[in-house]
Design a protein around this nucleic acid. Sequence first.
RNA 1: GCGGGUGUAGCUCAGUGGUAGAGCGUCACGUUGCCAACGUGAAUGUCGUCGGUUCAAAUCCGAUCACCCGCUCCA
Length: 529
Amino acid sequence: MSDVSTTKSMDDIMSLCKRRGFIYQASEIYGGVNGFWDYGPLGAQLKKNLRDAWWQDIVMNPCQGKPGPKGDPVSIVPVDTCIIQNPKVWEASGHVGGFNDPMVDCRETKSRYRADHLFCMGEKGDKSGQIYAFVENNDASFDAALKKLGKYKKKELTKDDIDICPLTDLSVDELAITVGPDAKEVGTLTEPRAFNLMFKTYLGATATEDDIAYLRPETAQGIFINFKNVVDTTRVSVPFGIAQTGKAFRNEVTPRNFTFRSREFEQMEIEFFCHAEEANDWYAFWRDWRMQWWQEIGLAGENLILREHDKDELAHYAKEGAGTSDIEYRFPFTAPGYGELEGIAHRSNYDLNAHQNHPDSNTKLEYLDTTRGELAKNGQPKGERYLPDVIEPSAGLDRGVLAILCEAYTPDPERPSKVFMKFHPRVAPIKAAVFPLVNKDGMPEKAAELHQLLVKKFGHLGKIETDPKQSIGKRYARMDEAGCPFCFTIDGDTLTDGTVTVRDRDTAEQKRIPFDDVVQFVATGLGLT
RNA sequence: GCGGGUGUAGCUCAGUGGUAGAGCGUCACGUUGCCAACGUGAAUGUCGUCGGUUCAAAUCCGAUCACCCGCUCCA
């Protein structure tokens, strides 16, 4: 395998992220806090640029003008919903149940099981003998437990000779005489412990159990609960999408792999609503276009893949739909495997249905589609009421940033910095740099002039750097590590013949262009023309 | 949550019981004419944290926190 990702060291990338101000450990001066990361000056701009690129290509100019499956323009509107919502939102969505799975650990085999997936067996009528646990719906596990029980009892046992009960029904004393699946010793299973993946907080100052609220574990539900508002107040019609970016929070059991699995993270989500008949086409459309988008933003190589989920790994809401695809990136820490950047899920009408049917919501969420239904006497369709299906392209912004950092990291022993960050110009935090060759003879003044010009023109897209100090090579090297695509150098000739040197980050090659062409050069380089 | 590893300057790391170091980076001044040039000078650390052993701890012991790896988990 010749891919570069396996030769890149995550330690080196993390070290550069710290050294150059991309990403810091959160609360570092207090020893850090597990699962949280702060973005430094370059990282914050990089992240904003990625978010802005998404916003531009999803909300402002959906799919860059690419028409949908039927040839119509893609319609998307934005929202910005709260991190804290009525807790009933999370009951309806299934998060309050699903995010509270109790787990059991085995001290002997170091295995962990979902407590509700474990069952145990003992000989009929024997209240004191050892109990043997096995994994639900796992014949091998069941047979092994039965065999161990038989060996313990020193007789052949069959299914008819045993009692079975859920592990969660066992008392502490019974757990102490239980042998775990795959275990040899008795009493190695821990008591079931709840792993609450949602962050809790309390509304109001009294902080009683009645005031519990949750930080959202995904931004999607904020969109679903506003579906009716958007339909009622905006001139949208199905098919259309609602998009938002924002923070979400999950109390991950094991935050790991730099920012890849953080407890606080930012999502970029679209919920695209369409008629069930068209859902499969829209699913394929979004899946392919989102893949193309990540490629265009700089993840063009073989480290990016589109992977269709197997049936057995589909989430509960996706069972009925066309499926789920992941756009995955081969990170240094996952190689040769991949880690998820974005999931495109066909959620059918699971979420709208759940909210409509929650006993306390009491709101009809059905959409009246006036383009469907039988024709009335006047020749107009009578309309059809339905809960739209949903295609959900849900991307992790922090994961996108991390993938871009990993992809951009390019070792190059030939250059002074030994490494440069090959960001796509669109996401590069520093768009251009202007340097006087030396800090005298009118060059700094000329450089300041060009710098101001570029700031005025491109400053809204990212940082325009300038620096009159130290040697030119040192300044180039710094820009290499920051991933600045273009450096313009003012020298003596600039003052006489009106040209500047432009240095290309990726090739380190230099050429002279007229001072007056610099703005156009940058515009072209950033893909603005 | 389990097991293993790591933790010393911004980064990479040396330092195995006796006055905290190096390289690079950063900053200042000078110099400098296209790839971390050079000269001079400077700043930066409760050696992750807390406790213990000791006349004496970066060093030994314990706990704890964070990160990395393997499990586990992952809407």
